[in-house]
Each structure stands twice: as structure tokens, then as C-alpha cells.
Nucleic acid binder design. Sequence first.
DNA 1: CGATTCTTTGACACCTATCAATCTTAGTGG
DNA 2: CCACTAAGATTGATAGGTGTCAAAGAATCG
Lengths: 233, 233
Amino acid sequence: MIACDTCLIRNRAICSVLDDTEVAGLNRIGRRRKVRRGETVIWEGDDAPVVANVLTGMLKLTSVTGDGREQIVGVSFPSDFVGRPFGAGSGNSVTALTDAELCVFARSSFDAFARSHPALEHELLERTLAELDRAREWMLLLGRKSAGERVATFLLETSHRLGRQNCSTEATDPDRFDLPLSRRQTADILGLTIETVSRQIGRLREAGIFLPPVRRTTEILDRDLLRAEAEQG
Amino acid sequence: MIACDTCLIRNRAICSVLDDTEVAGLNRIGRRRKVRRGETVIWEGDDAPVVANVLTGMLKLTSVTGDGREQIVGVSFPSDFVGRPFGAGSGNSVTALTDAELCVFARSSFDAFARSHPALEHELLERTLAELDRAREWMLLLGRKSAGERVATFLLETSHRLGRQNCSTEATDPDRFDLPLSRRQTADILGLTIETVSRQIGRLREAGIFLPPVRRTTEILDRDLLRAEAEQG
DNA sequence: CGATTCTTTGACACCTATCAATCTTAGTGG
DNA sequence: CCACTAAGATTGATAGGTGTCAAAGAATCG
């Protein structure tokens, strides 16, 4: 009996392409680690000696300028892979947005394991390509969209990603979701200030399109109008 | 004798990890294609039935909003790989910035070939990870940097990438390079307007930091000051 | 219930976009 | 080779969107 047998994301993480024997091998070089909200797992510019699977919780990937301006360049959910395997040090920090649990590997061990398991590398490649797609879509948002469009796009994208995340058997309403992000974090995702995000959300609330957090739970009231706002708001 | 034997980028493209027999196999499913400046090879949202190695020239990857605002999300040089293998259709268009020559593969054939050649997939993974690093660094620029910082960063980055590109035996001056980009294209990379880019370049010229294009050839006069501008200009 | 943190709201300033005109470059045909 | 044209780049005036600064209002947590 190894830890992976009881792993909640055994069938969704990169491990899903490995058979039981192979998973046992991977299990041998990994260990579980709990992190608290706000704790930074990997530091930007560091040699980034670890990579990990996200078991529970949410994490942010950030880049920061010399004088402290921060941009969130990615958000990781359970079953996502975080860290930078192969060669280069990490270009961004990884910090827990909520309490989280990780399955951590020393990078050197993981690199060696991956190199000898092509199926794992293929899965990693598919995920990296998907992440690159997402990053490039976000570049369009950061470079060319107005504050209103950004906030609307963010709400749609968040609803979509959290919907995929929810794995309960019963169908859940994609228009209602818990958003464990502060204004600062939302602003850091959208390349805006907290005040601008606040005003745009206020605008959507007044327009009856969106219902802001009541104890973290937020709701999209008019998805069609929100989509229109995302295109040109 | 196959086409790859005379290929200028045989040792720099993803093919470099294949032996002669394997390259022959890849050669069998590929074909060369010349494209003219401005020609679009892959259309955003298309099924994107092709991937390719860049042999000569420069290409841009772009995302576009519904109403025509464009963001350049990547620039490809000789030996770079373009297109979206495995599953998802392409999220962005690929358009030639200069006349260019490509080594094109039907995506289905390439996918199959790659899956049966782990070394190739590993190389693809390394390149995709590096591209993701670059994309995320650019997200910081688009989300958090001022116009002055963007232009300065762009000049440094361009100098760096074109320097690596130049493979002549003699050492070339990294501070002098040819920049085959119009103001519009530069603006679309930086998420700015052409007027703002023009003004910022004018500012750097007046400050004696940078010499704008004379018949495409541009020159960095004071790299240290330019670096300072990139941090907070 | 008090203290801290986060969010909202307002007033104002500034940066960048927009609009418009001039100037330069590149390309074409006489 | 030069004039002519069209496209691209620069420069200027103006406006608008977002950032900044400040204060008041919620929410969270002991």
C-alpha cells in the first residue's frame, strides 16, 4: 500500500498515464507536503529544486518587478503540475492562495524519472502546451483589453475553470462558485489596481449581470451580457 | 541524399536530437514551403492542420479580439518550431514578418512520428517550457510595466534573441542589429499604440541611449542606461 | 465587541490613446 | 535618374481611462 493508492488525483494528475508499478516508482521519490495560505513553495530566480503535483488547494505563479509590482502569470488547481523541470531555474514564484497539499519531488529525481518514462513526458508536454495556450490568450487580455473587458473575461474564465475542477457527481451550477481571491490577487491577475477592479465589479453588479461575493460565493446573473462585456466592455 | 542533409538548421531545430535514420523518416512526411512577407501560414481558430520548423525568416504568432485589436504573443526565428501539435486547434495565427522558408508537416503525421520518438518529444517539451517562461515574463511586461519600460525591455530582449540567432563565425556586435519590424508590429508586441512607441523611441534617441533604424539597422548606444530604463523608465 | 484587514467610494492627476497634420521612407513609372 | 505616389513614421493637441491618494465603510477574527 503506497500513498498514491489513496490519492484523490491519481487519475487526473500526470500520474494518470503511469501503471501501478510506475506510480510506485514515482511514489518512492516524492513526499507529501502541506502548505499554509500565503506560504511560498518556490521562489522566483531560485534554483527551484522542486516540482510538484497539486493535491488540494489553489496556488498562484507570479512574476515581480524589481520595485515590487506583481503579475500573477498562472493559477494552479488540484491535479495541476507546478515547477520548472529540466535545466532552467524557475522564472516565477509559486505561492499558496489557500491552504494546500502538494506531492513534491526533488527536481533532479523527477527529471531522471521523467526522462525514462516517455508517457509521462508526453503528458507533461500536452499540459505545457495547454498552459502556453492559456498564457498567450491572457497576453491578449493584458495587452489589448479594457478594464471592463478584463474583469468580465476573468469571471467567465474563472467560472469555467472552477466548473471543470468540481468533480462531484451531481451537476453543479456553473454560474455559482466560490472565489478565494482577494481584490489584490484579482488585480494582479488582470494587470489592474484593486480600485479599478472594484469599480468594474460594482458596475456589473449595478447592471444586474453579476453578484459579488457573499461569504466568498459569487454568482453570474446574466451570462450572455457578461460575454458581451468580455468582448467590448 | 535527402533534403535534411543540406538543411541549415539541422543541428539547431528539434531534429538535432534525431539520428540520420530518424531524420530520414521525418523528412519523408515533411515538405519545404516558401512564404512571402505578410502571408499567414496558420489561422487562429482553425483546425491548424500543420506544424513546421522555421528554416529562414521571422514569423509572428498573434491573438486577435473580435473587433480587430491584435496582440503579438510570440516571434519565431530560424530553428524554432511553430504550430500546435496534439489535439487542440491553434489558438493563434502564424504570419510571416519577412519572406520565410518552412519545413512543414501535416499535424497528424507529425503527432504520430513524435509519439514514437521520445527524444523528439523531450526536445519539444524543453522548447515549450522555455517558450512558456518567455510568455510569462512578457505577461509581467504587459500587465505591469510603463511604456518606457516596455520599449527598453523590448530592445534588450530583441538584441539578445537576434544575437543568439546570428551564427556567423566572427563575433558580431550585440548592440547593432537589423530590426525587421514596423512600428505597428512593435506596438502589437508591446501592447501599445504606434504613436506611444514612436515617442518612447524618440525619448531614448534624445537621451543618447539608442539609435533608431537607418535602413533597418538599429544600434544600442548605452546598454547600461537602457537596462535602467527597462527596470523603471 | 474591538481591532485589523480588506473593500468601496470619491477627487484628482497622469499616462497613454485618439485624432489630425506633417514629414519621411519605399516603391513605381516616366 | 527623378518625380510621383502610397505607406509608414513622427510630432502635436486633446481627451479619456486608469492609477494614485485619501477616507469611509464592510468583513473577518480573536
